[in-house]
Amino acid sequence: MRQLGRLVPALLVIALLLIVWQLYSTLGDVGSDLLPAPSRVASAGWADRSSLSDNLLPTVREVVLGFALSLSFAFALSILLDRSQAVRRALTPVLIGSQTLPIIVLAPLVVIWFGFGLTPKILLVALVTFFPLLVGLLEGYASTTRAAMTLMETMGAGWWKTWRLVRLPSALPSFFTGLRISVTYAVVAAIFAEYAGAELGLGIYMQSAKNSFRTDLVLAAVILCALLTLALYALTFALQRLLMPWYAQSRERPS
């Protein structure tokens, strides 16, 4: 019940935004085809629900697989970079550089290289999401206290044992911060990749709706994307509770 109570302010804001939007598009002098009212977006979306869900599933799949790739890559790389100063110095400029590639230019290129299938989408999602994960992990490792490292050293623990028993758990809070930043990029990246060429997916759905001037269906797909991102965001908290039960407990305690 308390959990639901916490949602009330957010729901009120959303309701307010919908009301303003509804009033503006019905009473204002914009054409209802240019800015369809939320009620019309909802009814058009509902009427086209089977097509929407057919297009939602591929997008979800791309996001999930892209994330799986991104997570494995970020973890493997973080271990390498944490292990060796030299590797870190050598790779950091390239990694930062990879984040300056404009996705709007990259998306069509990746489609040209890898075709219309799943691969370019997964790659693009991974490219956009791995960096916050990696930075979160590295900053997290660095937050391990000196005393903790000395303790492990005096106990004769090797590098790997110290990483597994101390550095990785120390990194988890900051890793989840990175994860939350990256989930908000993930859906956008998948849409971009689909926009550049796909058979199914919310991106291609929006594109064809736009081409036939169905702004109501474009907006319906946009709202679906927002809901998907919200769901992923909520999932990170669930995951955090599962993996770090001590963290929430230690913060709930007033002290």
Partner: peptide, 18 residues
């Protein structure tokens, strides 16, 4: 080096929260 008979107790307890 690597073989030492001491168990060290630091000033900060360094108990791991996890």
């Amino acid at each position: 080096a690597g073989h030492q008979p001491f168990a060290w107790m630091p000033q900060d307890d360094v108990l791991f929260p996890w």
